[in-house]
């Protein structure tokens, strides 16, 4: 049986300015990589703060590793690593000194642990440079290193790839994949880079205006989202689309804002489609299949898909 790492029932948080979380119910099982998707102010960070004990919910209950009482929640939090919003670093200290501070907070006696996590996030050669002089990406890596210090069983990461360069994003993904696959660490990650989140997460929670509007597994996403065919042509797109609608007898062919013609892959004989285009002497500049897309799924879900 899989253990539940985090469980929320009717969790709400209300501020004088409005509702940040509204009756949220969700659970994260051990080993899950849970991608948390939502617009700014949707309530993602508020939930993470509640998990960290920084914010008191106004209603509902929460359990971490099955523990619910205040004292036991505090000890459960020692098994969690956090990176919420921005890395909490002392600018007058270097990377090792910052980690030295947090090692003491966590009661870590292993003197080599700091160097270990620095190597893991690719900052082992940062040397004596003060973190006040770090780039955003370096700060983010060090923030992740702090979250990893206490060998967490559950990692809560709010925008972990924020500010990282493309290589850094890939590196962080590999680190998180390694933690998840090799060490069985459970992950709760929020990110606005949905394409990146899609490569990592096995389960997604979509939050909108404080409400969890949908939970879906990666497999379900693959099934629900359609593979689309995209054709770009120098001929008038409207005429080509109309021709395809008649020849293929499909009403679901549309023209994207980019001018490309898009139609669902299912039920289309690719050979026939290609020969139609050739027979009508329509110049094809590009032809591609688009994979199921978390971004599009999210936009459709919150009603901004434009489809």
């Amino acid at each position: 049986m899989t253990a539940t790492v985090f469980e929320a029932e009717g969790l709400s948080k209300e501020y004088p300015s409005g509702v940040a979380l509204d009756q949220l119910c969700m659970s994260i099982e051990a080993g899950d990589v849970y991608g948390f998707v939502g617009e700014n102010g949707a309530g993602k960070t508020t939930l993470m703060r509640i998990i960290g004990g920084l914010v008191h919910p106004t209603a509902g209950r929460m359990a971490l590793f099955g523990e619910q009482s205040k004292e036991r929640l505090a000890s459960a939090r020692r098994r969690i690593g956090f990176l919420i919003e921005r890395p909490s670093l002392y600018p007058h200290m270097n990377a090792m000194e910052n980690l030295g501070f947090y090692c003491r907070i966590f009661g870590i006696r292993d003197r080599g642990r700091g160097a270990e996590v620095l190597k893991l996030v690719g900052l082992d050669e940062a040397g004596p440079k003060k973190t006040g002089e770090y780039s955003l990406g370096m700060r983010q890596r060090l923030g992740i290193a702090v979250a990893l210090l206490n060998r967490p069983e559950f990692l809560v990461l709010d925008e972990p790839v924020n500010g990282l360069d493309p290589a850094g994003i890939v590196e962080v993904r590999h680190i998180l994949e390694h933690l998840s696959h090799e060490q069985g660490v459970t992950l709760l990650i929020s990110s606005h880079i949905l394409s990146e989140l899609q490569l990592l997460a096995g389960k997604y929670g979509f939050i909108h205006q404080g409400r969890l509007i949908q939970e879906i597994s990666a497999a379900e996403l693959q099934q629900t989202a359609q593979v689309m065919i995209c054709i770009s042509t120098s001929s008038p797109a409207a005429a080509v689309a109309e021709m395809l609608r008649q020849e293929l007898r499909r009403g679901d062919i549309r023209i994207k804002q980019t001018g490309e013609i898009e139609l669902p892959r299912s039920g289309v004989d690719l050979e026939r489609l290609m020969s139609l285009l050739v027979q009508r002497e329509i110049p094809v500049d590009g032809f591609q299949l688009t994979a199921p897309n978390l971004e599009q799924y999210y936009m459709d879900l919150i009603g901004g898909g434009g489809r």
Partner: peptide, 14 residues
């Protein structure tokens, strides 16, 4: 100022 209180409370200290 530096945000360390976040990590300290999240590490289970009251």
């Amino acid at each position: 100022e530096h945000g360390s209180v976040q990590n300290i409370i999240a590490a289970g200290h009251s």
